[in-house]
Design a protein around this nucleic acid. Structure first.
Lengths: 231, 231
DNA sequence: GTCATAATTTGCTACAGATCAAAGTCGAGA
DNA sequence: TCTCGACTTTGATCTGTAGCAAATTATGAC
């Protein structure tokens, strides 16, 4: 059993609806492991053997087309549950997840999923609404891809990154995780060239300050204007 | 209580895992209604009062952007359950659903959702994997929108329509529901003009035969070639 | 500190697909 | 049968973004 940050324990409790003593038993069955930046937790198509909770770090979930193109589906950060294939009635992982920073994550063999669901109805119920939120998010992105042009999509992606990994600074908000232009291109369905041009433009307007693997949002309101529907 | 096609009853049983006697009790609480082509079952943002099973007909689920553009998210046909907002932990409908043919559908007040879940664990479990499949489908579409060009996306949309509403004919397969060029544009994130041009091109290649609100696939293999990754 | 590598920027060109405009066609209802 | 309106087709033009190429700059390894 691992020593776990009590705050996280509370998060887990909130998600699972499980009382702390039970939760501690759960933790007894868990494995905690370190994943270096760039390592994969699991790959698309693999038999789903374990489900995870991120204790610290960031990962992104990516799908690869037959032609070899990558699409970044989403990010997960501290406290979030991922790899819960059985929650959507699957026995293989639907996508690959890659650590984009050094990570520590708990994981359980999949057999406990059923068990946790049975022990605590709230667990299953919460898993359900987590899946629901993800469905919602996916559909939002379809609408986005169908109706918005690249600059808006990049702005939206940046807003999401700020929400998930934003760190306040004197001048604005820093995206506190290494994200390349290529990554942002893969999040928005464009090319790294176009992302670079957009950043240059925003930079000269004072909306962001960008560098090598560094993105700082100086005017989040102006960024939101671009992201939102500009009447 | 409605007289219900025994075949459908079996479909319902398969979904819900409920034994027939219980199912018939369920049906006793249901309301069956007719919806004319063009009518809406429910609108985006409305409080989710009822969930539905389509007895006969087709609908499409559509989201509207603040700018007024429409995106068709998916279609539902006979035997499918829709409007199950609580299954994704929501109390409002996330999209609008519109009958695209005359329809007959059963519906239940939402309070029965909980009840059905409690009576039959299988019901909740199946709802879960239905949501999972939809999540999967949504993510596939994101990848599609991010990596494929219009012609491929239109081909994919047509393949899906054939699967859901295809009716075999001597020469091929007819899409047996009224779908306009505009509809297909809204399914694929393009314009009706582009769809029309693509259809013209396919038509002169003998892949499809198109007319006013009529689409017949003559060579589904060539269509699949276009839809699939053309190495 | 220096080098090697990877990430980024930027200019140029090409084109898929949007947009604008107009004509054609089918079908339902009078 | 005729008419009106909705849907569709097609042409002409414009433009956002991709694709290619090359220069520039940061970063980490040694």
């Amino acid at each position: 059993m691992q020593k776990v940050n009590p705050l996280l324990l509370r998060d887990l409790k909130a998600f699972s609806g499980i009382e702390l003593p039970v939760l501690e038993t759960m933790l007894a069955t868990s494995k905690s492991a370190f994943y270096a930046k760039g390592e994969t937790f699991f790959r698309e198509g693999e038999v789903a053997a374990r489900f995870f909770v991120m204790l610290d770090g960031f990962l992104h979930v990516v799908r690869t087309t037959p032609a070899g193109e990558q699409v970044i589906m989403r990010h997960f950060g501290t406290g979030e549950i991922f790899g819960m294939a059985p929650a959507i009635g699957r026995d293989t992982y639907p996508a690959t997840s890659v650590a984009i920073s050094d990570c520590v994550a708990l994981s359980w063999p999949m057999k406990y999923w059923q068990e946790f669901c049975e022990i605590t109805p709230q667990f299953q119920k919460n898993a359900l609404s987590a899946v629901g939120e993800r469905l919602q998010g996916s559909q939002d992105r379809i609408v986005e891809m169908a109706t918005e042009r690249v600059e808006n999509r990049v702005a939206k992606a940046l807003v999401r990154l700020v929400e998930q990994a934003g760190k306040p600074t004197p001048q604005g908000t820093l995206i506190d995780v290494a994200v390349t232009r290529q990554d942002i291109a893969e999040m928005t369905g464009t090319t790294l060239h176009t992302v670079s041009r957009i950043f240059s433009a925003w930079s000269s307007k004072g909306i962001v300050e960008v560098g090598r693997k560094k993105i700082e949002v100086l005017s989040s309101s102006r960024l939101s204007d671009i992201a939102g529907e500009q009447v």
